[in-house]
Design a protein around this nucleic acid. Structure first.
Lengths: 221, 221
DNA sequence: ACAAAAGTGTTGAGAGTACACCCATGC
DNA sequence: GCATGGGTGTACTCTCAACACTTTTGT
């Protein structure tokens, strides 16, 4: 049986690019220039090339849209309903990426393309089944923050505990108790002290970094 | 831009079918009759038809192999490395299914096809990247048992706490303390008493069923 | 009476949660 | 001296883990 005995569906990779801007969780959307859904906002993506892996496709799309590399990248889910794209059978493998807000300053909305950051509580109506996809991505994002160390990928190498707490508060959209938060994080034994940051106009905070070899560890916050 | 401007990869759905047989966790494998990997064991699967969703394809494959419907079915991951199939570019969307051992008695190895159950500690060498896929599936399976109620889908409607505990012990390959296990399960408040099973030659156990509307609840065992 | 599985409680340790004040610096 | 975030401890509750014997039935 040859591989091409069946009509082939098209395969795209869509990527949910999250970052933190203005103390809010943001996702990158693009404005569609062609039909269907012309003028609507959509999750960026494109066809998988025949000679690149799915992850490579995601990395490429990400770079095309933002000019930077992801600080965290993970496959999310594959959506393949028959009628999700009115043009024909399109299966989309979705990824989600986290980008450190530091990098973002290098290139935020360069490129004349119609890409824009949206705070996740101000999402416009989206093309295709992209609302469903985004909802799913947010769920997974929060889950990941709760049980793993992905949150650290949104921070610079050296950071303060307050910065870390801020990230968690933004992602979960609620406040945490400062003492409990610090106790919890420090008790994990994953941080290394990196000296004191003097460049502040208040009591100077301790800087921390993630110890080597603690990525991928499962945490329970 | 037309959908077919790019060369299309092929898309298959592979399905990891798990059940419990002889007090062991088993997975269904098929013997390949064609090259490549002719004669090797592989995870069952096939091409996605142009007019069926991914999940429908998984359900169809499952029925073709076992003759029954899944008691639990979930998308696992999509594997798309460029060279994972020597014949060409093949992207596979994997699913995992749980089948209640009761049904299995109805049709276990009918069909002259070369499908066979393998205890997960006696897996032969597999075709393609299927070892990686199986390993990933087992990880996910255990995770699901730990945090959700999927384990119940391997039991009949009415079951005893000992049966439930047995399932967990098989999946995790370790013993649990009977008192703690029962305390934990009962404290979840998800079980309904269904009377006593008299057909045993020892002290008759209480039968339980899952309360309505408690599927999909996240549990922490 | 014996085999076989069902059923049952307590204790100690660790984790999570709630809660309010002083500290170090720049200006 | 005041504004700004940084930093700290205790007490209560709840969950988890360890641990052994009695009960009910069929044969």
């Amino acid at each position: 049986m040859a591989l091409t005995d069946y009509p082939q569906p098209s395969v795209t990779v869509d990527i949910l690019i999250f970052t933190i801007r203005n103390n809010q969780l943001n996702v990158l959307l693009i404005k569609r220039k062609i039909s269907p859904f012309k003028g609507a906002w959509a999750i960026p993506g494109g066809f998988v090339r025949i000679d690149e892996s799915l992850e490579d496709a995601a990395i490429r799309e990400l770079k095309e849209e933002t000019g930077v590399e992801a600080d965290y990248l993970e496959q999310l889910y594959t959506f393949g309903d028959v009628k999700r794209d009115p043009r024909g059978r399109v299966i989309t493998v979705t990824y989600f990426a986290l980008i450190n807000s530091e990098k973002l300053k290098l290139k935020s909305s360069t490129d004349a393309s119609e890409a824009k950051w949206f705070p996740i509580d101000k999402i416009p109506k989206l093309a295709f089944d992209h609302e469903k996809i985004l909802k799913y991505a947010l769920q997974r994002l929060r889950w990941k923050f709760e049980y793993t160390l992905v949150g650290f990928s949104l921070l610079p190498k050296k950071f303060t505990l307050s910065q870390l707490q801020k990230i968690y508060e933004i992602v979960f959209n609620k406040k945490f108790d400062k003492r409990n938060f610090r106790k919890k994080i420090l008790s994990l034994g994953i941080l290394k002290e990196e000296g004191i940051d003097k460049n502040v106009s208040h009591r100077p905070p301790m800087l921390y970094s993630l110890k080597k070899n603690v990525k991928n560890i499962v945490e329970i916050l």
